[in-house]
Simulated assay, not measured.
Amino acid sequence: MKKGLFFVLALSLMLSTAAFAADTIKIGLMAPLTGKWANEGQEMKQVVDLLADELNAAGGLLGKKVEVISEDDAGDPRQGALAAQRLSTQDVVASVGTYGSSTTEATQGIYDEYEIIQIANASTAVRLSEKGLPLFFRSCPRDDEQGIVGAKTLIKAGYKKIALLHDNTSYASGLATEIRNELEREGVKPVFFEALTPGEQDYAAILTKMKGANPDVVFFTGYYPEAGLMLRQKKEMGWNVPFMGGDATNNPDLIKSAGKDAAAGYMLVSPPVPGDLDTPEAKAFLDAFKKKYTGQPGSIWSVLAGDGFNVICEAIQKAGTTDTKKVAEYLKTQMKDFPGLTGKLAFNNKGDRVGDVYRIYKVDAGGNFVLQQ
Rank of each mutant, 00 (worst) to 15 (best):
L231C: 04
A52K: 07
Q46D: 09
G222N: 03
F347T: 12
D73F: 08
T197G: 01
P134A: 05
M44S: 14
G158K: 01
A213V: 01
L15N: 00
Q334K: 15
Q85L: 11
K234W: 06
G238M: 00
V47C: 02
Y266W: 03
K156L: 03
D364G: 13
E184G: 08
E113V: 10
D91W: 06
E105K: 15
V218D: 01
Y114V: 07
R142K: 15
V241C: 04
T249L: 12
E178F: 09
S70D: 01
A125N: 05
F243W: 11
G228E: 03
D112L: 14
V217Q: 02
K160R: 13
I155C: 00
L268G: 03
N250Q: 15
T169M: 10
A284I: 13
Q373I: 11
T153C: 00
V354E: 13
M14L: 14
S299Y: 14
Q46F: 08
K336V: 15
L277F: 11
T324V: 11
Y266G: 02
Y266N: 03
A10H: 05
N181M: 11
E182K: 08
I117A: 04
R232W: 03
F137N: 14
P280Q: 09
F285N: 12
I255A: 08
P198K: 00
T324G: 11
G41P: 02
L277D: 14
D247A: 06
A52Q: 06
W301T: 13
G340C: 09
L304H: 15
F219W: 00
N56A: 08
S123R: 00
G343I: 14
D91A: 07
D112N: 15
K336P: 13
T169L: 10
E113I: 07
R232L: 08
V149D: 03
S173N: 12
I116T: 07
T294F: 15
K260C: 09
I206E: 00
V218E: 01
E178H: 09
K152F: 00
L62R: 02
G199Q: 01
V68D: 06
G174P: 05
T103W: 04
L13Q: 02
F192H: 13
S95C: 12
K3V: 07
Q46C: 07
